[in-house]
Design a protein around this nucleic acid. Structure first.
Lengths: 139, 139
DNA sequence: CTTAACTGTGACTATTATAGTAACAGTTAT
DNA sequence: ATAACTGTTACTATAATAGTCACAGTTAAG
């Protein structure tokens, strides 16, 4: 798979942490839920930790837990934490001097796509982890 | 590169067509502007053609042109025409029965991300090809 | 009616981002 | 001392995408 799923995996992990906050949740537990290796989970977890969304304890009986209340964590926080790719990527080519479209399309596109990216991020900011967890529990 | 640039290339092509509408624009001309092969251009052009955004003529002196006024073409039209990937893809894993997060996260995520996708598409719908062309010409 | 110059399309290769794994050093309860 | 974690690096495998090649189909022009 060459599709980026970091973000959705990260949300899965965060939801897992939000639900299992009673017991000490390990990367192994989470890996089982996501169906991948503990190592892969830990790498994503590391990013969430650096972003201050998750706290961890090393050593025997080490574990992970949410650093904040799920209500105060938005999907945008998670999106930014895992530095998922932008919604759009612009092709990079060497501009042909004699063609003004070729020379200026890139900046024009960047300007337009910045707006779109902004719209997407605003939308993500409005969804909290708590909402996701509520949805998961409802079913 | 495993990053999808279909969309930005398609906009580049459309801008090229919008600007060079006087002369017969060929896939070769466009390829030069984008700095890729004519064949690759034609394949993207084919999608735009199927979507009714572009018309083409085969045979000697064949060429391409916009099917509609640039003012009436939105970036969303182009986005849909090239069926660019969704902003987010959800990881696919086999759900672990004993874990309810694992079982239900997917539908919860889909619901949340549908909103985000919608926000993005609305934003794209508000930008017309004509605006892009104006930006390109301004500089 | 032959040739030249296009489009349209299928089949192929190369690239590279990403998923996923393995291994091991560092840490800390027991 | 040992067991069971985290944190991190290095590696392999996969697959989406870019990009190329080749050729059939079409049409204007000589």
């Amino acid at each position: 798979m060459a599709v980026n799923t970091q973000f959705s995996i990260a949300v899965h992990l965060m939801a897992g942490l939000a639900c299992g906050c009673d017991a000490g949740v390990t990367s192994g537990h989470l890996a089982e839920s996501v169906n991948t290796s503990a190592s892969f989970v830990r790498r994503t977890l590391a990013k969430l930790s650096k972003a201050g969304l998750v706290e961890t304890a090393t050593g025997k009986a080490g574990s992970c837990w949410l650093a904040k209340d799920a209500k105060t964590i938005s999907l945008l926080d998670i999106y930014e934490a895992v530095d998922a790719p932008k919604a759009f990527s612009i092709h990079n080519y060497s501009a042909q001097d004699k063609c003004y479209v070729s020379c200026h399309i890139k900046t024009a596109l960047e300007k337009a796509l910045a707006k779109t990216q902004q719209a997407m991020e605003s939308s993500l900011a409005e969804i909290s982890l708590a909402q996701i967890v509520a949805d998961v529990k409802k079913k």
